[in-house]
């Protein structure tokens, strides 16, 4: 699916660019974004190092195991294929916690660490496991309790109203994501090849 969407976006970009006369802008965007991609990755190095360092302390001191144990009833149902004591569960929980608290900077390193640990359990390294898909569905549905600072800055006093509507909308999208991922993992075309 990603293959078609990836190609489709570029092809539509080219065709629409010809129609609207924006073809120069399309060219420029392709070059600029290639540069931006590297800048994002390089900018991530420091933040990644900071959070992975702190995570290592939390891991060695047993804090992560402690948190993972507390949330076991939930994680066992969401990630039945991952052993409940596996470090991946701890990282997944911390990533979700960071997302809920609106700590985007902390969420990415924790999420990438969770992916690395899930990959250790993956028998087929180029193919996503059920656990990975579930984790990403929850992640991309954006569980959020605290509004991003940027939104608060933009909306000012109206943020208070947005707070409630966002919580309702994001809860619905998270439930939809979980239901969708759990339903689709049983479909023939998406079935785990093992």
């Amino acid at each position: 699916m990603l293959n078609y969407i990836w190609f489709g976006m570029m092809a539509i970009g080219l065709i629409a660019g010809v129609i609207t006369g924006n073809i120069d802008a399309v060219t420029q965007a392709a070059i600029d974004m290639a540069k931006t991609a590297v800048e994002i990755a390089i900018g991530l190095i420091g933040i990644m190092a900071l959070w992975l360092g702190i995570m290592k302390i939390a891991e060695e001191s047993g804090l992560i195991r402690l948190i993972a144990r507390g949330l076991r009833p939930v994680t066992i149902r969401l990630f039945p294929d991952v052993p409940p004591d596996h470090p991946a569960i701890g990282s997944i929980i911390l990533n979700m916690a960071a997302n809920i608290l609106g700590l985007g900077n902390a969420a990415t390193p924790l999420g990438l660490k969770a992916m690395e640990e899930l990959q250790e359990l993956n028998p087929k390294k180029d193919t996503a496991t059920n656990a990975m898909c579930t984790f990403l569905a929850i992640n991309t549905s954006s569980v959020q309790l605290i509004l991003p600072a940027t939104v608060v800055g933009l909306m000012g006093v109206a943020s208070n109203q947005i707070f409630i509507t966002t919580i309702i909308a994001t809860s619905l999208s998270t439930v939809a994501g979980i239901v969708a991922v759990k339903t689709m993992e049983k479909w023939k075309r998406y079935r785990e090849v093992s």
């Binding site: 990959q119 390294k125 180029d126 898909c133 549905s141 619905l172 994501g177 689709m184 479909w187 785990e192």
Partner: peptide, 20 residues
Amino acid sequence: VGVTKSRHALPAGLIADAVG
């Protein structure tokens, strides 16, 4: 992690987005 076959992750994520 070098996963290229993302299976149902993308459709599920997009459904969550649409519902949101």
